[in-house]
Design a protein around this nucleic acid. Structure first.
Length: 427
RNA sequence: GGAGAGGUCGCAUAGUGGUCUAGUGCGCUCGCCUGGAAAGCGGGUAAGGUUAACAGCCUUCGAGGGUUCGAAUCCCUCCCUCUCCGCCA
C-alpha cells in the first residue's frame, strides 16, 4: 500500500508509475482517490469540532446533574441534535474511507529506479548471463515427464485421480529426492546464510493475505475454505511475513531473516493450456522461502543478499541458471524491484522460473502495519520486507532430472544431496 | 462441539454510566541526592488522525454494531485466551 501523504504530494509520480506498469487505467482511480482525500479531511475537521463540543457540553451536563443546580434539558436537546450530526458525518466518513481503502489496496507499489521500463516478459533484462555446469548431455534427451514415468518416481496420473490435474505424486526415490532437496536447502540457509528456520501454518486468515498483498486483488488465485474462512497459502511468504503483523520491532532486532519450508497451493485459474505439462504448472508444490525484515536504508543490500543466497543453492547443485531483472510491465504489483532466477531445462530447451527475489520496500509493511523504532527516534517507522524463493522444488526438479540424466535413462544424484538421499543413482 | 471464567497504557492490576483528560505498582528512563552506587525523592513513559505545528482538538480499554446528551462500565454479534467435559492424529 502506498502512503496517502506521498500520493497527495506526488500525484504525477504515481501516475507515471502506473503508466510504466501498464496500469494507466488506474489513473482515473487515482484522481478519485485524491478527491476523496480532500473530502475526507474536510469532514474529519468538521466532525472533530462537533465531537469536541459534545465532550465539553457533556461535562457541563454532568456538573449540572451532580450539583443539582439548574436544568440540563436544553443542553441535552441541543446535544441530541449534535449527536445526530456526528452520526451522519461518521456514516459519510466511513463510506469515504472504505472507498479510499479499496483504491489504496489496489494501487501497485512504487518502482525502484533500476527497474527497466517495458511492457511484458519480453522486456525483462538479463542481469546475470547463463551460468553453465559441465553436464555431458550429448545423447537424445528425455524430458522430466518421461524420466519420472520410466523410473517410477513421479506419478501425475494417480495424482490426477486422487486430487485432480496439477497435483503430482512423488514415489520411492523421487519422494526421497524431493525431501532431500528441501532439507538441503533449509540446512544451507540456516547454517551458512544465518536464517532462522520457521515452520508456519499452511492456512491463514484474510488479514494475512491482505498484509502481503494477495488480497483483495489476487484472491481468485488462492484456495479458500469457506467453512472455516481460511485460505491455503500460495507461498510461505504469507504466514512468515505476517509473523510480525501489527508489531513495533526494536531497532536492535533488525535485520530479521527467516527461512521456511511450506507446501504452496495455487489455483492457477485461467492458465490452462500454457505450460501445463508435468511440473511446469501445478496446484501444489514445495518451496523454501527466505523472508527478510530490514531497516529502509538496508533493504537493497538485503535484496542482493537474498539473490546470492538463492544462487548459492543452484551453484551447490550445479544446476545451470540465469538471472533476470524484471521490467516495469512484468514485475508483480507488490514489488518495487524483483529478480527472477530461471533454471535451464535442456529437454524443453528453455529457461524456467524457479525463484523470485523481491524488495517490497514499505508496501507490505504498511498493509500489515509492521514498524520499528529507529535508534534515537521516538516515532515508529515502517520497515522494509523482502523475500525470495530459495527455491521452489517443482521447476528445480525438472532441471535437476534433465541435467543429471544418463544415456541409460537413470539419474545421477547431485553430490551435495547424497548425504540426504542415502543413494547416488536413481534407476 | 458443550459448560464456565476472562481479555484495560511493556508486565501486573484498579475501575459496573458523568471529577477516567484511564488510577496504582513493577519495569524502563531523566533529574535531585551521593566520592560512586543502592535506597529515597521528583518528573517522564502508547498508537493513529487532523494541522504549518512535537500547540490545540479528535479517535482507540480484544473487534464490530447498539442504547445514551454522555460508555472501559449497559445490550448484541464475532474473535482470542484459560479451566473442565466430549472427540481426536
Amino acid at each position: 500500500m502506498l502512503d496517502i501523504n506521498y500520493i497527495r504530494q506526488n500525484p504525477e509520480e504515481v501516475a507515471e508509475m502506473l503508466k510504466k506498469r501498464q496500469q494507466a487505467e488506474d489513473s482515473i482511480r487515482l484522481d478519485e482517490l485524491l478527491e476523496f482525500d480532500i473530502q475526507r479531511r474536510q469532514l474529519v475537521q468538521k466532525s472533530d469540532e462537533l465531537k469536541a463540543l459534545r465532550n465539553k457540553v457533556s461535562k457541563d451536563i454532568a456538573t449540572i446533574k451532580r450539583t443539582g443546580q439548574g436544568s440540563a434539558e436544553d443542553l441535552i436537546r441541543e446535544m441530541k441534535e449534535v449527536a445526530d450530526n456526528i452520526a451522519r458525518m461518521n456514516e459519510t466518513l466511513g463510506e469515504l474511507e472504505e472507498k479510499m481503502e479499496a483504491i489504496l489496496l489496489s494501487l501497485p507499489n512504487k518502482l525502484h529506479i533500476d527497474v527497466p521500463t517495458g511492457c511484458s516478459s519480453e522486456d525483462n533484462v538479463i542481469y546475470k548471463e547463463p551460468i553453465a555446469f559441465d553436464h555431458a548431455l550429448d545423447f537424445p534427451l528425455k524430458n522430466h515427464l518421461d524420466l519420472g514415468n520410466t523410473l517410477g518416481i513421479l506419478d501425475f496420473e494417480r495424482g490426477a485421480k486422487i486430487s485432480g490435474s496439477g497435483f503430482p505424486v512423488y514415489a520411492g526415490k523421487g519422494a526421497r529426492l524431493e525431501r532431500a532437496l528441501l532439507n538441503f536447502m533449509l540446512d544451507y540457509h540456516t547454517e551458512k546464510h544465518g536464517y532462522t528456520e520457521i515452520f508456519p501454518p499452511f492456512m491463514v486468515n484474510e488479514d494475512s493475505l491482505r498484509g502481503t498483498g494477495q488480497w483483495p486483488k489476487f484472491a481468485d488465485q488462492v484456495y479458500y475454505m469457506n467453512e472455516d474462512d481460511l485460505y491455503a497459502i500460495p507461498t510461505a511468504e504469507v504466514p512468515v511475513t505476517n509473523l510480525h503483523r501489527e508489531e513495533i520491532l526494536r531497532d536492535e532486532q533488525l535485520p530479521i531473516s527467516y527461512a521456511a519450508y511450506s507446501a504452496c497451493f495455487r489455483r492457477e485459474a485461467g492458465s490452462y493450456g500454457k505450460d501445463t505439462r508435468g511440473f511446469l504448472r501445478v496446484h501444489q508444490f514445495n518451496k523454501v522461502e527466505m523472508v527478510k525484515f530490514t531497516r529502509p536504508e538496508d533493504s537493497y543490500d538485503a535484496l542482493e543478499e537474498i539473490l546470492h543466497n538463492a544462487e548459492a543453492i543452484l551453484k551447490a547443485l550445479k544446476i545451470p541458471y540465469r538471472v533476470l531483472l524484471l521490467c516495469s510491465g512484468d514485475i508483480s504489483a507488490t514489488a518495487a524491484k524483483c529478480y527472477d532466477i530461471e533454471v535451464w531445462s535442456p529437454a524443453e530447451n528453455k529457461f524456467l522460473e524457479a525463484s523470485s527475489c523481491s524488495n517490497f520496500e514499505d508496501y507490505q509493511a504498511r498493509r500489515a502495519n509492521i514498524r520499528f523504532k529507529p535508534a534515537g527516534s521516538s516515532k515508529p517507522v515502517f520497515i522494509h520486507t523482502l523475500n525470495g524463493s530459495g527455491l521452489a522444488t517443482s521447476r528445480l526438479m525438472v532441471s535437476l532430472l534433465e541435467n543429471y540424466q544418463t544415456p541409460e535413462g537413470t539419474i545421477i544424484v547431485p553430490e551435495v544431496l547424497r548425504k540426504y538421499t542415502g543413494f547416488d543413482l536413481i534407476d
